[in-house]
């Protein structure tokens, strides 16, 4: 982890309450998709953790949903604004166990880290299939970006206003896959867990204090011991997750 200053080069709304922020700065420390950054914002005490959607040595793409005070401030930041980031944080997705035909399942604002993961899997000559789920048409984002990667893509909306009507699990049902990767809300995780046929990795979210393992604020219990979502997570393997009621 390092503390780095980044510059906002784009910050635009791409769906209902969803924004895309492009940053320039030293992102050479990012080693895996699914890692995150912790952003210091004026007038807020705690930093705000945001997952990395895409990265290169000197740029970052963050996609975030305006849900609270932090993301509200972020949505108003202009081009040229400097931001203090802790980067990179968390373990990220491991592609070692993916097999040849992994399935990527994103729900709502859980979609972003799967984009970087999809690019990494393609770079490793694997053949990922992508399922994205949203509530309604106005919430859909990154459908074109995934399509541009040339991967089989299935989009679902709960109300049927875009793509297939239903949930990601409806689209998953007929697909064959070697492994799965997912990020999204807990109800989606539970639905996936009940039908998934292979091993996989889930990326979790929790309220964090520091984001780098010092405060123990975001700990969870797993079958392999206590883990900090910010440090040993946010990505946990299917086999180790303790599904509490």
């Amino acid at each position: 982890m390092e503390q780095k200053v980044f510059t906002v080069i784009q910050n635009i709304k791409i769906a209902k309450d969803v924004y895309k922020m492009e940053l320039s700065g030293d992102a050479s420390g990012v080693s895996r998709p699914g890692q995150f950054v912790n952003i210091r914002l004026d007038s807020l005490f705690l930093r705000r953790p945001i997952s990395i959607c895409d990265y290169s040595r000197n740029s970052l793409t963050l996609i975030y949903k305006k849900v609270g005070a932090g993301t509200e401030i972020m949505s108003k930041l202009g081009v040229g604004q400097k931001l203090d980031l802790l980067i990179p944080l968390g373990n990220g997705y491991s592609t070692e166990k993916s097999g040849e035909t992994p399935l990527l399942i994103g729900g709502g604002v859980g979609v972003p880290p799967l984009y970087g993961l999809c690019k990494k899997l393609l770079a490793e000559s694997k053949r990922p299939t992508v399922v994205l789920g949203f509530g309604s048409k106005d919430e859909v984002f990154y459908e074109e970006e995934f399509r541009a990667l040339g991967v089989p893509l299935f989009v679902t909306t709960v109300d049927g206003t875009f793509g297939q009507k239903g949930f990601v699990t409806d689209a998953m049902a007929g697909l064959a896959y070697s492994y799965f990767y997912t990020c999204g809300p807990m109800p989606m995780f539970r639905a996936i867990e009940s039908i998934a046929k292979t091993g996989g990795q889930y990326s979790f979210e929790e309220r964090m204090g520091c984001g780098f393992g010092a405060c123990m604020g975001c700990s969870c219990k797993t079958l392999t011991g206590n883990k900090r979502i910010c440090k040993e997570g946010p990505v946990l393997e299917r086999e180790e997750i303790l599904w509490e009621k």
Partner: peptide, 13 residues
């Protein structure tokens, strides 16, 4: 969890 809350000029743990 949750066991962290942000506050003005501080946090609750």
């Amino acid at each position: 969890p949750p066991r962290i809350a942000d506050c003005t000029a501080g946090l609750i743990n």
